[in-house]
Design a protein around this nucleic acid. Sequence first.
DNA 1: ACATGCCTGACACATTGTTGGTAAGGTTGT
DNA 2: ACAACCTTACCAACAATGTGTCAGGCATGT
Lengths: 124, 124
Amino acid sequence: MAALTIHEAAQTTGWSARMLRYIEQLGLIESPRSAAGYRLYGPAQLQRLRTLKELLDGHGLELGDVGFALRLRKEPALTEALDEWFEATPRKPVEIPDADWLAFEQDKHKSLLTPVPTTTRSTA
Amino acid sequence: MAALTIHEAAQTTGWSARMLRYIEQLGLIESPRSAAGYRLYGPAQLQRLRTLKELLDGHGLELGDVGFALRLRKEPALTEALDEWFEATPRKPVEIPDADWLAFEQDKHKSLLTPVPTTTRSTA
DNA sequence: ACATGCCTGACACATTGTTGGTAAGGTTGT
DNA sequence: ACAACCTTACCAACAATGTGTCAGGCATGT
């Protein structure tokens, strides 16, 4: 038998079988299946599982984070939307020194502030 | 006093004041402070808050996801590490001149040659 | 000065994510 | 045939998120 079963793979990688299934469910590592549907872990999968662990440990990540990173790779539109949002940063454009930035901000307020009617606050 | 206070900003953006502080705590939107430490929300921040809401709704994200995206921008090493992991695709691992790997491949083929398994395979 | 509003913390609660365990049923090797 | 192992699905326990609220202490406007 060249490939390992899930419990064997768990043994050698340090994950639990439960987590191996969970990782697959997150779309992070898909193992081939036998004709009967058994997961088969080959060297590639084992390597990936081990490096995944290092990745998490080394950078303080969680599986969900890697899952999100995967989503970013699969959905360029999402990456783009995030890029756009991050670029609309409230930080000053590098060319404008602090004082000018503040003046700029305040000036902007006078013209286009409050797109919503009265700021009536009903005390909660 | 050109900028809005936190409750006013909450009012116009649809977030709660509590969430505005939470968002700041996550490092997503930092508002300038008055001399006494009051948060001051200018047009830039308000815009950012509104688009943040759209971003979350439109893509089914959570604040933590955006926080993680921020981390990716601040830590190129992290992005690189993830790139590396994702590129280590299970099809062609690094370079394993291992007989085991070939054996695994053959086994995989053998498995794939077998027709539909006897298990109750409901074609979802 | 007083009423109101902001600040930081902290406690609380619902929801969700993570991880383990167990049960019912098919598969495999001896 | 039988023991051992896999699969999916479900329940449970515990941690993390998201969100409200309240308390004690300054700040601000009238």
